[in-house]
Amino acid sequence: MIDRFLYLVSEGIRSLWRTKTTALATISAIGIAASFVVFSAVVGENISGIIQIARGQYEFQVFFSKDVDNIRAAELVDQIGAIEGIMSASLITKEEAADIFQREFGENIFDLLEENPLPPGSVLKLRQPKDGRIDVNPIIKQIELVEGVDEVRYQERLISLIERYYEGFFAAVTALAAAILFGTVILISNTIRLSIYARRDLIRILKLVGATDRFVRFPFMIEGILEGFFGSLVAAAVSYGFVEGSNYFLSLFTQYRLVWQFQIVALLVGVIVFFSFVGSMRAVRKFL
């Protein structure tokens, strides 16, 4: 039993060498097809990363009424910080507001007006949901209902633009990746079928000498798994090279770096290997 198992495993590996031209063509075809899948995953992941960075910059400035002093302002900040969807709320006292004024305009407000008319306020950061869009309108409405709040300022157009297209973008990327994956599966299946078709004589001879279907299938299964593995390694290497190359050029003018996530690529390698295995099994069955 062990002898037969070892023989079949070695046959699977040796047949890659025996049919090296066909195997190379198959691995290349799988590699090219899988590259599209891995590439779309890497691009999707990085665009998602950029969007998340942009979402992390969402900032709300709340201005309190002029009659609100620093003590009352601190209470209001606590009240606002408790609103659902707000991650942090920090107090800007009247004095800090004057400092900000001086930093931005270069003038001391006391020198200009002999008093500080600037109200205290707060800077808010939003909690990012793991998925789905952020709806800022209910949060804004709740803040505006707090007594003592005079005005809420935020990058309304930018936030609504990002949030409007956020879900649509991920739906499109997922649909595109699924379509590419489907095409890849068909391509892998057909490529392996062609390589097995070229060896239908082997299958026939094995059947004539008394091989069971399982015995015939096993080396092709090993071969399919190896071809899928090597093909997806090619795809992983291509995508890694793309990301590293892009990062080199990005480093010339920005600090942003593309991400190559090992877990996602490993998952895709697993998916490609699985479909190569299934493709082999389906192709061999036609000749049994």
């Binding site: 002898d3 004589d201 082997l202 001879i205 004539l208 091989a211 069971t212 015995f215």
Partner: peptide, 29 residues
């Protein structure tokens, strides 16, 4: 079985061709 056109596997040696039925039967190396 013996056939007019031999039905040998062209990419395997004489030894390997003859050994196939034994491997099929699970005979030890």
């Amino acid at each position: 079985m013996v056939f007019q056109d031999f039905e040998l596997l062209k990419d395997r040696s004489v030894f390997d061709n003859i050994a196939i039925p034994l491997h099929v039967q699970g005979v030890g190396m």
